[in-house]
Design a protein around this nucleic acid. Sequence first.
RNA 1: GGGCGCGUAGCUCAGUUGGUCAGAGCACCUCGUUUACACCGAGGGGGUCGCCCGUUCGAGUCGGGCCGCGCCCACCA
Length: 870
Amino acid sequence: MASNVPERPTLDGLEEKWSSRWEREGVYRFDRSAPRERIFSIDTPPPTVSGSLHVGHVFSYTHTDAVARYRRMRGLEVFYPMGWDDNGLPTERRVQNHFGVRCDPAVPYDPDFSPPDEPSEKDPVAISRPNFVELCLRLTERDEQVFETLWRTLGLSVDWSMTYTTIGRLAQRISQRSFLGLLARGGAYQLEAPTLWDVDFQTAVAQAELEDRERPGAMHRVRFAPADGAGEALIETTRPELIPACVALLAHPDDERHTALVGRDVLTPLFATRVPVMTHRLVEREKGTGLVMVCTFGDLTDVMWWRELGLPVRSVLGPDGRLLEVAWGEPGWESADVQQASAAYGELSGRTINQARRRIVELLEQSGDLVGEPEPVSRAVKFFEKGERPVEIVTSRQWFIRTLEHREELLARGRELRWHPSHMRARYEDWINGLTGDWCVSRQRFFGVPFPLWYPLDDGGAVLHDQPIAASTEQLPVDPSTDVPDGYTAAQRGQPGGFVGDPDVMDTWATSSLTPQIAAGQPAETAGCDEDRKLFEKVFPMDLRPQAHDIIRTWLFSTVLRSQLDYDELPWRDAAISGWVLDPDRKKMSKSKGNVVTPMHLLERYGADAVRYWAANGRPGTDTAFDEQQMKVGRRVAVKLLNASKFALADLPAAAEALTHPLDRALVARLAGVVEDATRSFEDYDYARALERAESFFWWYCDFYLELVKGRRYDPDPSASASVSLALGISLSVFQRLLAPFLPFVCEEVWSWWREGSVHRAPWPDFQELSALASGEGARGEGARERVALEVTAEVLSEIRKAKSQARAPMRAPVRRVLVRDTAERLHALELGTGDLLLAGSIEQLETAAEEEFAVEVELAPNGSREPLG
RNA sequence: GGGCGCGUAGCUCAGUUGGUCAGAGCACCUCGUUUACACCGAGGGGGUCGCCCGUUCGAGUCGGGCCGCGCCCACCA
């Protein structure tokens, strides 16, 4: 076989050399003409573009890439696009600071707008939503270039001609169209209701976007007075500022301590508002006094109690996180002492929650309604995951997607999906079982996909929310803040009898949950893009969803939901869940901890293959500690492959037609077993095991097989070298392909020395083919003995090395005599390897003795002895 | 409080259906420049496999119970 092996092979520069060549030659280009059964489609996570990629991204995307490369080598056309998740709050924040602007949907679009030369964070320029979105796009485009460069350096085998963004026109069209479909089928509805609310961003948020944070607080024991005079009612609360919003007190129905109170009314302290004492089965008797205050709204439990018990709303918290003005004495704000209530509340009105809390505690102390000292406590508080203050519950009009009524179907889909590792399904089920409400999808933000809706205004200029005007499918995507609904003129915007656009955008997950559709470019049905529609039908449902475990409740769940609602099927067949990268102290990496590792310098220092090697060692679903040592090991593997390939391929003598030497056949037989194992592992998405098998056998191969056959490989007699020549060609070809999904650059390099085309389009090694070669002519049913021969020969060689090492002799030191004690069967096998062993060990004389225990006696030749070898 | 996962050499981790399973790499120590490789090679020390019961001829491997760690979830007043 012709080969072109460099004098001094090197890893340096391989990333640049091969990534540009792969791009030029379209190695990873997806062939749209492939039939459905030859396609493997991957619904890749679109990374969030704001900020930068960290090693965690490198980690999990490498896992996916290894699988993609494996499937490609199995002869499948791999649909593997990359998306950028650029819509949403993080981008908004960056744009505001970077350009010194803020979005005001009331401002008209200015096509000639350019951002201020000197951005001022304090005094931002108000601009229209379309202008704001343009700036977002400008900034994210730059980020996306950086990301793509990193991915290319890492060697992701993505088809870069199929990249999408979650804010792009296509994503908007698909997202809006899916929403309109839900609306038409009753799957989406709007409701004025208590909603989770972030007071800083001033937007609704979803349950899925919440996280618990431990925060210090104080428990206050507060006295309520029964309205009819007798006794007292003590409650404990961490949120005394909500006392004016109290609508009831609750006790457990069986709690005898409070039976005397139940059914009566009490007066709230300071505000003297009459509220009933009621019972509910979920009140916990052990907590506090066993009596709990229900406010509108302190937390989600309040919402549940409020709903189940039919309590009134008495809301004191504004969307900006400050206490609203309240007209005491008016309906809903009755008080037995209006003057006192107004005076007390006057101290709170307009203050933030924390300010109001401090003040009301003082007021309660003065009035004597605070019992004892507030007791410091630490408790978990719900935060919007991107927020800085706890979420509140504010009543507002929002859009929801029906979720709860599909619980059983979603659980069934979860059982249908093949999870890797399987235990990850529990997280999905836990999440579904814990859902408390439908999915709130509207956000009072700007950089997102707008709702494709307008509302008519009546003659008085009031918004008729219950008569939304939906965009027509042909119009999509629309921005209702600039586009005009059919049947209206632009001049009618905001006029009585005219219309207004829905001011909100969708939750970022409402679009991200459609990545399979977006990636496949699924068009609006009427858009007439037959080619795109055919593509969608070929790749959907997708074969694989790879992602990390922290977004099972968001991305995975919402994608299953949308697919269920729109197509009544799973969006993919398999879900491969990656773990996280932890810092060396096993803490989660996060920007706030300052322990985030950025990947570019790692790629430069160790090379992409080495970094990928580290990543691919992380087993599916398992968190991995960041470890640069592993990258060094990865680099060693890559260098080893260079050198082993050089040894095997440089000036390789003519190969035989068949493997005539028993050790060569045994080697190929073992190789077949490794291939079988690696293949099975890959089929089960266990890339880490596939790597481990291939790698450990590769090291054994270098340490023993290559050493054993050196003599024959350099033997000038072609009849001696022909078999090993063939074996070296076979084995190197197999190793280069087995390792290609993990070390794509070095494997491509060594492949290019002697083979046409890319190793990444070469067929995955076939263990049956290898088995056939190993048991071909000459073996004559001696396969088992041959495999033992290889094993024993290697073990004896190892013993000889040990002896030399202990004698502090060089490895090439001649051995006068070796005595091998072993079972008759193994000694019989050893005969097949004796020739190679003598050369590899520089042995003059080999003797054997049949015994139970394996043992080797080694007698080195005297110092200075350089007698010719026999 | 519920669920899931994990506890194997100083460190990072393999150990597929119970029977060379006590392993690998790193780190450490010793030796060695041999025509694939000093971005190297050969060798060595080091662990009662978290603890306790049980099943079994035999258990890191199965069952039960503890202890510790992590994550997810929860109606934490």
